[in-house]
Simulated scan of single mutants.
Amino acid sequence: MAAAAYAYELDGVSFAYTPDTPVLDEVTLRIASGSWVSIVGPNGCGKSTLAKLLGGLLAANSGTIVVEGRELTQDSVWEIRPRIGMVFQNPDNQFIGSTVEEDIAFGLEGRCLSREEMTDRVQRYAEKLEISHLLTKHPAELSGGQKQRVALASILAMEPGIIIFDEASSMLDEKARSELLHIWQDMRSSGDYTLISITHDAEEIMASDRAIVLRGGAIAADTAPAELFGEEELLHACRLIAPYRVRLVQELRKRGLDGDGILPGWQTRRR
Protein backbone atom coordinates (compact mmCIF):
# COMPACT_ATOMS: atom_id res chain seq x y z
CA MET A 1 0.00 0.00 0.00
CA ALA A 2 1.33 3.44 -0.94
CA ALA A 3 2.22 5.78 1.88
CA ALA A 4 -0.39 8.46 2.63
CA ALA A 5 0.41 11.90 1.25
CA TYR A 6 -0.64 13.46 4.53
CA ALA A 7 0.24 12.38 8.04
CA TYR A 8 -2.66 14.50 9.31
CA GLU A 9 -5.76 16.07 7.83
CA LEU A 10 -7.80 18.13 10.30
CA ASP A 11 -11.16 19.57 9.30
CA GLY A 12 -13.03 21.92 11.64
CA VAL A 13 -11.57 20.46 14.82
CA SER A 14 -12.83 22.03 18.04
CA PHE A 15 -12.23 21.11 21.65
CA ALA A 16 -13.19 22.41 25.09
CA TYR A 17 -12.48 20.98 28.54
CA THR A 18 -15.66 22.69 29.75
CA PRO A 19 -18.58 23.75 27.50
CA ASP A 20 -18.15 27.47 28.12
CA THR A 21 -14.35 27.55 27.65
CA PRO A 22 -13.29 26.56 24.11
CA VAL A 23 -9.60 25.74 23.72
CA LEU A 24 -9.50 25.02 19.98
CA ASP A 25 -12.02 26.43 17.53
CA GLU A 26 -12.56 25.12 13.99
CA VAL A 27 -8.92 24.16 13.32
CA THR A 28 -8.38 22.98 9.75
CA LEU A 29 -4.94 21.99 8.45
CA ARG A 30 -2.93 19.35 6.63
CA ILE A 31 0.51 18.07 7.55
CA ALA A 32 2.44 16.32 4.78
CA SER A 33 4.01 12.94 5.52
CA GLY A 34 7.75 13.21 6.09
CA SER A 35 7.66 16.91 6.98
CA TRP A 36 8.71 18.73 10.16
CA VAL A 37 6.15 21.19 11.47
CA SER A 38 6.54 23.56 14.42
CA ILE A 39 3.41 24.60 16.31
CA VAL A 40 3.96 27.84 18.20
CA GLY A 41 1.96 30.43 20.05
CA PRO A 42 1.52 32.18 23.42
CA ASN A 43 0.82 30.20 26.57
CA GLY A 44 -2.77 29.03 26.76
CA CYS A 45 -3.39 29.14 23.01
CA GLY A 46 -4.11 25.40 22.74
CA LYS A 47 -0.74 24.00 21.58
CA SER A 48 -0.51 21.12 24.05
CA THR A 49 -4.20 20.35 23.65
CA LEU A 50 -3.67 20.10 19.90
CA ALA A 51 -0.70 17.77 20.51
CA LYS A 52 -2.89 15.49 22.63
CA LEU A 53 -5.58 15.46 19.95
CA LEU A 54 -3.00 14.57 17.30
CA GLY A 55 -1.65 11.83 19.56
CA GLY A 56 -5.08 10.33 20.17
CA LEU A 57 -4.92 11.15 23.88
CA LEU A 58 -7.99 13.39 23.61
CA ALA A 59 -11.02 13.15 21.33
CA ALA A 60 -12.23 16.24 19.44
CA ASN A 61 -15.63 17.61 20.41
CA SER A 62 -16.35 18.27 16.74
CA GLY A 63 -14.61 18.00 13.37
CA THR A 64 -12.49 15.17 12.01
CA ILE A 65 -8.87 14.08 12.35
CA VAL A 66 -7.51 11.75 9.68
CA VAL A 67 -4.17 10.07 10.40
CA GLU A 68 -2.28 8.65 7.42
CA GLY A 69 -5.55 8.26 5.51
CA ARG A 70 -7.64 6.82 8.34
CA GLU A 71 -10.10 8.78 10.47
CA LEU A 72 -9.28 8.87 14.17
CA THR A 73 -12.33 7.62 16.09
CA GLN A 74 -13.06 5.74 19.30
CA ASP A 75 -13.03 2.52 17.28
CA SER A 76 -9.82 3.20 15.33
CA VAL A 77 -7.72 4.97 17.97
CA TRP A 78 -6.16 1.76 19.34
CA GLU A 79 -4.94 0.76 15.90
CA ILE A 80 -3.75 4.26 14.94
CA ARG A 81 -2.01 5.19 18.18
CA PRO A 82 0.95 2.77 17.71
CA ARG A 83 1.85 4.82 14.63
CA ILE A 84 2.34 7.90 16.83
CA GLY A 85 5.06 8.54 19.39
CA MET A 86 5.03 11.40 21.90
CA VAL A 87 7.98 12.91 23.77
CA PHE A 88 7.08 15.33 26.55
CA GLN A 89 8.74 18.20 28.37
CA ASN A 90 9.82 16.25 31.44
CA PRO A 91 11.40 12.87 30.56
CA ASP A 92 11.13 11.74 34.19
CA ASN A 93 7.39 11.37 33.64
CA GLN A 94 8.01 8.82 30.87
CA PHE A 95 10.41 6.48 32.67
CA ILE A 96 9.09 3.04 33.60
CA GLY A 97 12.11 0.76 33.92
CA SER A 98 14.75 0.66 36.64
CA THR A 99 17.49 0.79 34.00
CA VAL A 100 17.77 2.47 30.61
CA GLU A 101 17.66 -0.93 28.89
CA GLU A 102 14.46 -1.91 30.69
CA ASP A 103 12.90 1.43 29.89
CA ILE A 104 13.52 1.14 26.14
CA ALA A 105 12.27 -2.47 26.17
CA PHE A 106 9.12 -1.74 28.18
CA GLY A 107 6.94 -0.57 25.30
CA LEU A 108 8.08 -3.49 23.14
CA GLU A 109 6.87 -6.11 25.60
CA GLY A 110 3.25 -5.39 24.72
CA ARG A 111 3.91 -5.83 21.01
CA CYS A 112 4.42 -9.60 21.28
CA LEU A 113 7.86 -9.33 19.73
CA SER A 114 10.36 -12.13 20.10
CA ARG A 115 13.10 -11.70 22.69
CA GLU A 116 15.63 -11.53 19.85
CA GLU A 117 13.73 -8.72 18.12
CA MET A 118 13.35 -6.76 21.35
CA THR A 119 17.06 -7.06 22.10
CA ASP A 120 17.94 -6.02 18.57
CA ARG A 121 15.74 -2.92 18.75
CA VAL A 122 17.07 -1.88 22.15
CA GLN A 123 20.64 -2.16 20.93
CA ARG A 124 19.94 -0.54 17.56
CA TYR A 125 18.18 2.54 18.90
CA ALA A 126 20.53 2.91 21.86
CA GLU A 127 23.36 3.03 19.35
CA LYS A 128 21.44 5.46 17.12
CA LEU A 129 20.94 7.84 20.06
CA GLU A 130 24.51 7.24 21.33
CA ILE A 131 23.38 5.92 24.71
CA SER A 132 24.66 2.31 24.52
CA HIS A 133 27.03 3.03 27.40
CA LEU A 134 24.05 4.02 29.56
CA LEU A 135 21.96 0.86 29.18
CA THR A 136 22.74 -0.44 32.68
CA LYS A 137 22.28 2.95 34.36
CA HIS A 138 19.28 3.94 36.48
CA PRO A 139 17.43 6.93 34.94
CA ALA A 140 18.15 8.98 38.09
CA GLU A 141 21.87 8.83 37.25
CA LEU A 142 21.42 10.58 33.90
CA SER A 143 21.69 14.21 32.89
CA GLY A 144 18.69 16.03 31.42
CA GLY A 145 19.99 15.61 27.87
CA GLN A 146 20.68 11.91 28.41
CA LYS A 147 17.18 11.41 29.82
CA GLN A 148 15.61 12.97 26.72
CA ARG A 149 17.74 10.73 24.50
CA VAL A 150 16.48 7.70 26.44
CA ALA A 151 12.88 8.92 26.16
CA LEU A 152 13.33 9.34 22.41
CA ALA A 153 15.02 5.93 22.05
CA SER A 154 12.05 4.36 23.86
CA ILE A 155 9.71 5.95 21.30
CA LEU A 156 11.86 5.15 18.25
CA ALA A 157 12.12 1.50 19.30
CA MET A 158 8.34 1.29 18.80
CA GLU A 159 8.98 2.40 15.20
CA PRO A 160 6.20 4.97 14.79
CA GLY A 161 5.93 7.03 11.61
CA ILE A 162 4.86 10.19 13.44
CA ILE A 163 6.59 11.72 16.47
CA ILE A 164 5.19 14.64 18.45
CA PHE A 165 7.54 16.66 20.68
CA ASP A 166 5.62 18.65 23.29
CA GLU A 167 8.15 21.23 24.56
CA ALA A 168 10.64 18.35 24.63
CA SER A 169 13.74 20.57 24.62
CA SER A 170 12.53 23.29 27.00
CA MET A 171 14.08 21.87 30.18
CA LEU A 172 17.50 21.23 28.62
CA ASP A 173 20.63 23.36 28.76
CA GLU A 174 21.95 24.91 25.56
CA LYS A 175 24.38 22.07 24.79
CA ALA A 176 21.83 19.31 25.30
CA ARG A 177 19.22 21.26 23.32
CA SER A 178 21.66 21.66 20.42
CA GLU A 179 22.49 17.95 20.46
CA LEU A 180 18.82 17.01 20.45
CA LEU A 181 18.16 19.40 17.57
CA HIS A 182 20.86 17.67 15.50
CA ILE A 183 19.19 14.32 16.18
CA TRP A 184 15.85 15.69 14.96
CA GLN A 185 17.51 17.11 11.85
CA ASP A 186 18.94 13.67 11.07
CA MET A 187 15.51 12.14 11.57
CA ARG A 188 13.99 14.69 9.22
CA SER A 189 16.67 14.02 6.60
CA SER A 190 16.03 10.26 6.74
CA GLY A 191 12.50 10.73 5.40
CA ASP A 192 11.26 8.02 7.77
CA TYR A 193 9.37 10.30 10.15
CA THR A 194 6.83 13.08 10.32
CA LEU A 195 7.93 15.42 13.13
CA ILE A 196 5.66 17.83 14.99
CA SER A 197 7.26 20.18 17.53
CA ILE A 198 5.26 22.12 20.09
CA THR A 199 7.89 24.72 20.94
CA HIS A 200 9.02 28.22 21.88
CA ASP A 201 12.61 27.60 20.79
CA ALA A 202 13.63 29.80 17.84
CA GLU A 203 16.38 27.50 16.56
CA GLU A 204 14.02 24.55 16.68
CA ILE A 205 11.44 26.50 14.69
CA MET A 206 14.03 27.60 12.11
CA ALA A 207 15.13 23.99 11.60
CA SER A 208 11.59 22.89 10.75
CA ASP A 209 9.88 23.07 7.36
CA ARG A 210 6.81 24.99 8.45
CA ALA A 211 5.50 27.06 11.35
CA ILE A 212 1.86 27.04 12.43
CA VAL A 213 0.93 29.84 14.84
CA LEU A 214 -1.99 29.34 17.23
CA ARG A 215 -3.70 32.30 18.89
CA GLY A 216 -6.90 32.05 20.86
CA GLY A 217 -7.43 28.47 19.79
CA ALA A 218 -7.31 29.23 16.06
CA ILE A 219 -4.61 29.26 13.38
CA ALA A 220 -3.25 32.80 13.10
CA ALA A 221 -0.50 31.98 10.58
CA ASP A 222 0.78 29.02 8.59
CA THR A 223 4.08 29.93 7.01
CA ALA A 224 7.76 29.20 6.43
CA PRO A 225 9.81 29.69 9.62
CA ALA A 226 11.89 32.49 8.11
CA GLU A 227 8.67 34.25 7.13
CA LEU A 228 7.43 34.02 10.72
CA PHE A 229 10.57 35.71 12.05
CA GLY A 230 9.89 38.66 9.78
CA GLU A 231 6.48 39.26 11.36
CA GLU A 232 7.14 41.47 14.38
CA GLU A 233 3.54 41.47 15.61
CA LEU A 234 3.35 37.66 15.59
CA LEU A 235 6.73 37.34 17.28
CA HIS A 236 5.62 39.69 20.05
CA ALA A 237 2.34 37.81 20.50
CA CYS A 238 4.16 34.48 20.69
CA ARG A 239 6.95 35.88 22.89
CA LEU A 240 9.55 34.72 20.41
CA ILE A 241 12.94 36.26 19.65
CA ALA A 242 14.40 35.64 16.20
CA PRO A 243 17.68 33.68 16.07
CA TYR A 244 20.84 35.79 15.90
CA ARG A 245 21.48 35.04 12.21
CA VAL A 246 17.95 36.20 11.30
CA ARG A 247 18.37 39.44 13.25
CA LEU A 248 21.73 39.96 11.54
CA VAL A 249 20.15 39.69 8.09
CA GLN A 250 17.39 42.09 9.12
CA GLU A 251 19.91 44.63 10.40
CA LEU A 252 22.02 44.37 7.23
CA ARG A 253 18.94 45.03 5.14
CA LYS A 254 18.10 48.10 7.17
CA ARG A 255 21.54 49.41 6.20
CA GLY A 256 20.99 48.64 2.53
CA LEU A 257 23.23 45.57 2.49
CA ASP A 258 22.47 42.11 1.14
CA GLY A 259 22.76 39.51 3.88
CA ASP A 260 20.73 36.74 2.22
CA GLY A 261 23.77 34.45 1.92
CA ILE A 262 23.96 34.26 5.72
CA LEU A 263 20.59 32.53 5.85
CA PRO A 264 19.94 30.05 3.01
CA GLY A 265 16.29 29.86 2.06
CA TRP A 266 15.54 33.27 3.55
CA GLN A 267 12.04 34.16 2.39
CA THR A 268 11.03 37.08 4.59
CA ARG A 269 9.14 39.74 2.71
CA ARG A 270 11.07 42.94 2.17
CA ARG A 271 9.26 45.89 3.66
Rank of each mutant, 00 (worst) to 15 (best):
G12E: 12
E251P: 03
S76V: 04
I196H: 03
L195T: 02
T18R: 15
L129Y: 05
F229A: 10
T28P: 08
N61F: 04
R269Q: 14
A224Q: 14
V150C: 02
H133M: 09
E231D: 15
S76A: 14
I39K: 05
S190T: 13
Q185H: 08
S48Q: 06
L252Q: 13
S76Q: 08
V40H: 08
Q74M: 12
T223H: 05
I31C: 04
S114W: 08
V122R: 02
K147N: 05
E9D: 10
V122D: 01
A202Q: 06
V246P: 11
L53D: 08
C45T: 14
E179G: 13
R247C: 06
R121T: 02
T99R: 05
A224H: 13
V150R: 01
A2K: 01
Q250G: 07
G217Q: 08
L195A: 09
N43E: 07
R115D: 14
G161S: 15
P22G: 10
G110H: 10
E68N: 02
V66D: 03
R115C: 05
L214W: 09
G56K: 04
Y6R: 00
G230T: 09
A60G: 09
D25Q: 15
A126C: 08
A2W: 00
A237Y: 09
G145R: 01
Q74C: 07
L142G: 02
L24M: 12
S62F: 05
A7T: 02
V249S: 11
V87S: 06
F165C: 02
H236P: 01
S35V: 03
Y8I: 00
G46A: 05
G261S: 15
S208E: 09
P160I: 01
R210A: 12
K47N: 04
H182D: 15
G261K: 11
I155W: 01
R255G: 07
R124Y: 12
L180S: 10
E251G: 05
I163Q: 04
R111T: 01
